[in-house]
Design a binder for these strands. Structure first.
Lengths: 128, 128, 128, 128
DNA sequence: GTGGTCTAGACCACG
DNA sequence: GTGGTCTAGACCACG
């Protein structure tokens, strides 16, 4: 997986990194149980501070996306089939509401929005 | 429209305010041309500094959501019917991709996600 | 001459008014010695405060563009042929420098800029 | 680059600062990718508040003239060679129209105006 | 150490 | 009375 960061972005580097890894997991670019680069390795590759990568990994671990094993480093968590959310999280709903509000004001109608979602979903390998 | 801010949130106060107003416009709680409270009034009501409200208003103005008329203060912009985006903005797509990735990993399937979108869209008054 | 103001503009109303009248004089829409509407008349026509029109007229008078005669109201000043600036004012130069800097950064080259100036000048009737 | 502000000017300090930096970029006094002083440093040098400098930087960033990199502070944006405007912006045209009207009334003829533009352009390093 | 956010308080331009 | 500008001073996120 190729990672590229935008140094001039509003989004903090550690968050960009987190986001890219989550998308990588969802699309299958990063397989379940796949080993991630070490903190130092990734920091060197991206030319950023190791602390920044560490922060991204810690966040991903806390959110359950990856597991950090002292012996084997970080790897993508196994998908917890049983733990599937019955109801989408309020957080997701809150973010989606804002996105849809912005889109609606700009004249994006529900069917066009739905098409866009479908297109993005089709790139995800995590569909049951 | 009832506005409430979360002082403990990561999201800056001015951004929370901006987000709430955008949702208010999209849902129709705030009608086109409706007058917003004055900067000082809203700051008093929310118990925050006037400059924080000022920053939210300035951002909304810059993004075209509201107009600031020196005679009557801030009001919701008229919807530019002609200016509807032919294609959703790349920014929207980028944010939506991350949201869908997070949802997909949590086991939300396309049809459930679609239902959620439809439900949110139904609250918006901005459908053509 | 048709005057229209943008109530949502950054530019104060009295300044918009002043600018439009100056352009009107330069293009010849307003002839030398032509009588301007009374303050009250213009304020009513534009739906703005009489004080705002008054401020625009006072500014134009101070700058020498119009003369205000208590008996006959405001009229466009006669062009003072003798008083032609030998050297463009530093104020003009300062404003033009900023405009050209912005244009240059955006990739507008001197010849394109010159064409634009020529096109605008051709609309002015005040060429000797 | 030497920056000086006019405390008695009508033009807000943050806007004077923005204007000077834009001219600095256009003339090449500030090179592409050159690092700008930190907000606090510049505020101290100019004897003004850091928030005022902050506002100028935020504006320049929003307009694309500078980029703010969390690691190294603010720096002049790379010129987007591909993104050159095919047609000068209406904003530029509007401002130029007023400037030319004022000049024409004062008796500045097209050729003199053209000379002035040429002289200013010759100080800009941004010519292709 | 950097910019980002926020506050309290002040004065001014505009209308 | 409204928003715009500015100050002094503080704390925090990011790296």
């Amino acid at each position: 997986m190729l990672l590229s960061l935008d140094l001039d972005s509003e989004t903090p580097l550690y968050e960009q990194l987190r986001n890219r890894i989550i998308i990588g997991i969802a699309t299958g670019e990063l397989a379940e149980q796949e080993k991630l680069p070490t903190v130092r390795q990734l920091a060197d590759d991206l030319g950023i501070n190791a602390m920044t990568v560490n922060k991204a990994y810690a966040l991903l671990k806390q959110e359950g996306y990856i597991a950090i094993d002292r012996r084997h480093g970080a790897k993508v968590s196994a998908r917890q089939q049983g733990k599937v959310d019955a109801v989408p999280e309020p957080e997701l709903e809150r973010k989606l509401e804002l996105l849809i509000a912005e889109a609606a004001i700009r004249g994006v109608d529900p069917s066009r929005f739905h098409q866009l979602c479908a297109r993005i979903f089709s790139k995800m390998s995590y569909q049951p």
